[in-house]
Design a protein around this nucleic acid. Structure first.
Lengths: 249, 249
DNA sequence: CCAGGACCTTGACCCAAATCAAATGCCACA
DNA sequence: TGTGGCATTTGATTTGGGTCAAGGTCCTGG
């Protein structure tokens, strides 16, 4: 069983934080930001470490600063489904809930910017800027979850893989306010098993479809955790939904 | 193409509204409730009517008073997935969004309690009771969507059908603050096709599994839109997740 | 340099659910 | 009382992805 995360002393000031304008603090300024800054503490996890188990008490909430985490749900017989992917700027934990509803696992080395839950809940009542940003982020997550429903319910294994790559590319690009185009590289901080859990497939099927996409030139593999996409539009075509990814918000 | 909904003159006062303590207005009292009451207007739709098409402008938000609606998403080639089921007290529309992200269809006769979007957005800024209730409801919807991800990704056709029935039974019971037990009846205001769209199956598979559950005595059919469940625990067992449905919130 | 183990790939076979194709039941309405 | 239009059921057949079973690759540590 993994050790608890180091509560790390070295943390960045909010001014130079990479997720400053995308996280739950995005709309805060001046005093509000100072208050958050005084409350925050970092937690670090290694790839594979469990952040919380479903059903365990959870006394903090926080934002992903760097790395990736997965929310995971299970049936009694062990069938596992990842139900959320937390990327930088995403919010972890639910205000008003004592127990974690899902198991959270770091799928790569992970840094969280955390707040103790109770004081954060109080802040949420006093401070409409934070509350409204959290509502906005929750609505975005709901939209993302609903897109995922379409993927799980109706897409083929090949389309699922392509869709995952498209999402990762878009999220990576959004952090630097660009739109993915032409030839791109995608970091893939997930094992084949984690991909399978996310896509509702088995790891064998993920592996086979990755091989097929490679064979047909849709992707190239640079090691196991880095994918080169020669043509992003080709990948989007393979993903089944021909949308343009919406506004660059 | 269906006619636009009648904006109906006959509407109930909030005091005797069946969703008074579950909808977005749940925590409002006195003046706040009066303000909502003065703004509200009802809309009625017949089973099968479309409330909004994905991509269309949407100038109102609202709550389901009675009936049922489905949120639907599509791939270009026509594959369809329902991504949300709106039952009484559920909220429709997204503050801050001009265009509908999903097609909304009444799956049974439907009554909505609506507010024009702009004034409602203003209310959300001025009135933390409404904003916090909306956040709470959105977080609940996100949890429901995530449970649905597990269903779509990992459950068998039979488990999916049983799960849908369990959810409908729980929602029906929650409205009258009870917990489903023993022998119960479930209203099923969905066609086989709508069920298939919700469950990520074909309508033939839905029909076959309904027949199988009937043959084995898990359910009895009373007409096509009403299901009798002799033993609720048996149904929950068939649904795959053996949870107790959580607190009666 | 080699051994062990985690992770990944590939092959053979199987099965649950999709697809294709009729029937059947069930109104509403002439 | 028939008739057209649905929704639904049922049957036959196909197939995408699961399951089971080897191997292969690449670290890491002795």
């Amino acid at each position: 069983m993994p050790q608890d995360a180091a509560i790390c002393a070295t943390q960045q000031p909010c001014e130079i934080c990479p997720i400053r304008y995308r996280a739950v603090c995005a709309h805060c300024e001046g005093d509000e930001l100072d208050e958050l800054e005084s409350m925050k503490f970092y937690r670090r996890y290694e790839a594979g470490q469990v952040v919380v188990w479903a059903g365990d008490r959870m006394d903090f909430v926080g934002s992903v600063v760097s790395g990736m985490a997965g929310l995971t749900q299970q049936l009694e017989d062990g069938r596992t489904q990842m139900v959320g992917l937390l990327l930088p700027s995403d919010f972890l934990g639910r205000p008003g809930r004592e127990m974690a509803a899902y198991t959270v696992t770091a799928t790569s080395d992970l840094v969280l910017c955390c707040f103790r839950r109770k004081p954060f809940e109080k802040l949420l009542i006093d401070n409409p800027r934070i509350a409204s940003r959290l509502l906005e982020m929750t609505l975005d997550e709901l939209d993302a979850a609903r897109d995922w429903l379409l993927l799980l319910g109706r897409k083929s294994a090949r389309e699922k893989i392509a869709s995952l790559l498209v999402i990762l590319a878009r999220r990576e690009a959004a952090l630097i306010k660009r739109r993915p185009e032409g030839r791109i590289a995608i970091e893939l901080p997930l094992t084949r098993e984690a991909m399978a859990d996310y896509l509702g497939l088995t790891l064998e099927t993920v592996s086979r479809q990755m091989s097929a996409l490679k064979r047909e030139g849709v992707i190239e593999l640079d090691g196991k955790r880095r994918v080169i996409v020669p043509s992003f539009v080709r990948l989007v075509t393979e993903s089944g939904d021909d949308s343009d990814g919406g506004p660059l918000s």
